[in-house]
Nucleic acid binder design. Structure first.
Lengths: 329, 329
DNA sequence: TTGAAAGCGCTAACAT
DNA sequence: ATGTTAGCGCTTTCAA
């Protein structure tokens, strides 16, 4: 820019004015400046500009895995909102590792992102306190932060699991298994709670053998499902704790002669084309992301007040697998 | 940082030294500085730091849609590579709109990203020439840039389509339809070319009614498929031009009494659980992304030389739908 | 071992 | 209408 000013024989500020389309530049001066800009191939450095302005027009997004079919639309929704506000997205995957999450978040704060959308992985987010006090607006999505009071947008995990379980009960099932994620993952714990609540509502006992929480790789889920199906008290239905579990269960159940009912958690593409079509408790990831981003930008626009907690409802999509009657024991 | 220096009664540079772990600070000075840092809650501003250093340690990613199941793993792979090099990802979706892509890319360049990974949407990327000359390393993925010579990583789209078509021919089909994306999208054109080549190889004519290129919303694909199936020269097999078309076709074909063979393009989750399981020509999106990012960082590390073009092979995954024999005409 | 000064590229505040 | 100065928060150079 300095070079442009010299080349056009004008002051630095005049170039700045032209570049930013400000008023108060004589037409022919403007022309001369533009010519110099073209001649030198000048492009404004937004980094420097934003440094001066004290913002970065960018917001950070940290979540487990960018490529997960559940999170990808969430990010996309945040992106749309950011775009509407002229901000760019900087993002990173935490790979469900609290330490990596922390590094990522702090790296983003060090770059002075204006705001942060985080799907928390760990259970202690006090490290964010100083950053938030320093002015980084932060909204958590999908799970609550640990030991930190902040804006958060959640799905009604307990309610959804409860509804899914009740649905199975309404279709005659009394022995229902729950296969979910590690109990230290909040959503998993909530869903387990909903499952138990529905069983209790119906006065049904829960055999400990029916509940399995842990990593959701296919191999483990498969093994657990087999165990539950062939154990001393086989179930007639499953409630899956997340999308990965649902898919694994579909695979296991497809290979068995006797039909077993299944309600999945999270919707997925082609669920309606499987046989039987898969009944699921659906969340709306795009709405989660959009809502969170909306709150974030409202904060950035100056909205004060205590941290808000928003819970979005889930929706039971009955497609077939959840309406199968109990197999004859 | 200035405040820290004042508080610790040392020079600015000494604080800088401590913050960056540089040598040459007396132990007790260092201690005093650290104490002041904690007392004031100081965090280094990486934006300012990088401004001074003339890089940003961030790379831009621009593609059609972050949430697309094909692109999400690609981005993820770029992210891993970036992480290994200490860089963050800034990204945006072009929504297949050349103008939006251009804006996004230029916004990223204005922020002086060190490098750029782009899945091009338009067909004229000359606007990038000045940026690349100015030092923004750029690698294109999945499609070639228009009117610009640059590094690019592609799948063998023509080869894949040819193999898929030949597979259908080998299973006895002679009337095969191709339903693909708009012909101005390069990958779509390439795949059409592969389809035609395979048909020609086998000495088979291609009825113009069998080929349909255009937007891939479900409604249009559905209508076109119905038209082709009920027209004067119905086909016995389909080659789908991309993942969205594949899914739409699965839906259409599932609703018909007479089984019709199908080979999809791009693999998708659960393809093996449908009935019949769906045969596809699979690309490896993560490998595309990883390869592109690898090339990018090699350039950033100083690798010179002419632009490189890498083509990755596709893989035919025979699962059932592509091995169905032709229905009796 | 330490620090003062200059400067990265820009904009805000105040001249002229 | 235009220019000058200061400064965003840091690093680099060079001197002490």
């Amino acid at each position: 820019m300095k070079d442009v000013a010299a080349h056009a024989r004008v002051g630095l500020k005049t170039v700045s004015r032209v570049v930013n389309g400000e008023e108060g530049v004589a037409p022919d001066t403007r022309l001369r400046v533009c010519a110099s800009i073209d001649a030198l191939g000048f492009r404004r450095n937004d980094g420097a500009r934003l440094l001066r302005q004290g913002r970065t027009a960018s917001i950070g997004v940290v979540l487990e895995d960018l490529a997960d079919p559940f999170y990808a639309p969430l990010v996309r929704a945040v992106e749309e909102e950011a775009r509407a506000h002229g901000a760019l997205l900087i993002n990173g995957s935490s790979a469900e590792d609290p330490e990596r999450e922390r590094e990522l978040v702090l790296a983003l704060c060090a770059r002075r992102v204006d705001g942060l959308v985080v799907v928390p992985a760990g259970d202690d987010h006090r490290y964010l306190r100083p950053e938030m006090d320093a002015g980084v607006a932060t909204v958590f999505v999908d799970r609550s932060p640990g030991l930190l009071d902040a804006d958060v947008v959640l799905s009604d995990n307990a309610g959804g699991a409860r509804e899914g379980t009740a649905h199975l009960i309404a279709h005659g099932h009394r022995r229902i298994a729950f296969l979910g994620d590690r109990p230290d993952i909040q959503t998993a714990a909530e869903r387990l709670r909903g499952y138990r609540a529905a069983m209790a509502d119906a006065g049904l006992p829960v055999d400990p053998a029916w509940v399995s929480l842990g990593p959701t790789e296919p191999a483990r889920v498969r093994a657990e499902a087999e165990r539950i199906l062939t154990g001393h008290a086989p179930v007639t239905a499953f409630l899956a704790g997340n999308n990965r579990v649902t898919v694994s269960l579909v695979r296991v159940l497809a290979g068995r002669p006797r039909p077993t009912a299944l309600v999945g958690f999270d919707d997925f593409e082609l669920a309606d084309l499987l046989s039987p079509p898969v009944t699921v408790v659906a969340q709306d990831p795009a709405l989660l992301g959009g809502t969170a981003a909306g709150m974030l930008f409202r904060r950035l626009a100056g909205a004060a007040g205590a941290p808000r907690r928003v819970t979005l409802p889930t929706r039971l999509l009955a497609r077939g697998s959840g309406e199968l009657p109990p197999a004859q024991g």
